Simulated assay, not measured.
Amino acid sequence: MIINHLSEILGRKRLSVRDVVRGTGLAINTVSGLYHDTSKRVDLETLDKLCTFLEVGIGEILEHKKEQEG
């Protein structure tokens, strides 16, 4: 399972979705979908822009956890 930490990062940095849109040039729907964790797919270019703007590594935005069996 992939866990998305974008909303936590924005909260810590006190940034809004609109701040990220202005700073990256990404579409508001793209950033909003990631923020609300409703996106099904993420483009590598999108991740690159987010990492650069937020000054974080990709592993800080996305985390992989093994799903529990049972």
Score class of each variant (00 low, 15 high):
7 S>E: 04
53 F>Q: 06
11 G>Q: 14
50 L>M: 00
66 K>S: 14
6 L>D: 02
52 T>M: 10
14 R>A: 15
65 K>Y: 12
6 L>Y: 00
64 H>C: 09
52 T>N: 09
60 E>A: 11
8 E>K: 14
35 Y>G: 05
60 E>R: 12
33 G>W: 00
54 L>N: 06
62 L>D: 04
40 K>G: 10
36 H>S: 13
2 I>A: 06
27 A>E: 08
3 I>P: 04
38 T>A: 08
19 D>K: 05
26 L>M: 02
5 H>T: 09
52 T>F: 11
1 M>Q: 15
3 I>D: 07
58 I>M: 10
20 V>Q: 08
33 G>E: 01
49 K>E: 02
41 R>I: 06
61 I>R: 00
20 V>R: 01
21 V>P: 09
24 T>G: 00
27 A>Y: 05
65 K>F: 10
20 V>D: 06
13 K>H: 07
9 I>F: 00
12 R>N: 08
37 D>Q: 12
64 H>K: 13
50 L>T: 00
58 I>V: 15
10 L>F: 05
7 S>T: 09
2 I>C: 03
2 I>L: 13
41 R>E: 12
44 L>F: 15
70 G>H: 10
70 G>D: 10
63 E>P: 03
61 I>D: 01
10 L>D: 03
12 R>T: 12
65 K>E: 10
49 K>M: 07
66 K>C: 05
7 S>N: 12
30 T>C: 10
53 F>D: 01
61 I>Q: 02
29 N>E: 14
21 V>W: 04
28 I>S: 06
53 F>E: 04
17 V>L: 04
53 F>S: 01
29 N>W: 09
46 T>E: 04
69 E>D: 13
29 N>D: 14
11 G>I: 01
51 C>S: 09
39 S>F: 00
14 R>Q: 15
52 T>I: 11
58 I>W: 02
13 K>T: 13
6 L>W: 00
31 V>L: 09
35 Y>L: 10
56 V>D: 08
64 H>D: 08
15 L>R: 04
46 T>G: 03
26 L>P: 07
3 I>Q: 14
28 I>M: 03
66 K>N: 08
38 T>C: 05
34 L>N: 05
26 L>Q: 01
40 K>N: 09
13 K>G: 07
45 E>C: 06
21 V>D: 03
25 G>C: 12
4 N>K: 01
1 M>C: 13
24 T>C: 01
6 L>H: 02
32 S>V: 01
42 V>G: 12
36 H>N: 15
35 Y>K: 04
39 S>A: 15
58 I>H: 03
17 V>W: 00
3 I>C: 08
25 G>H: 12
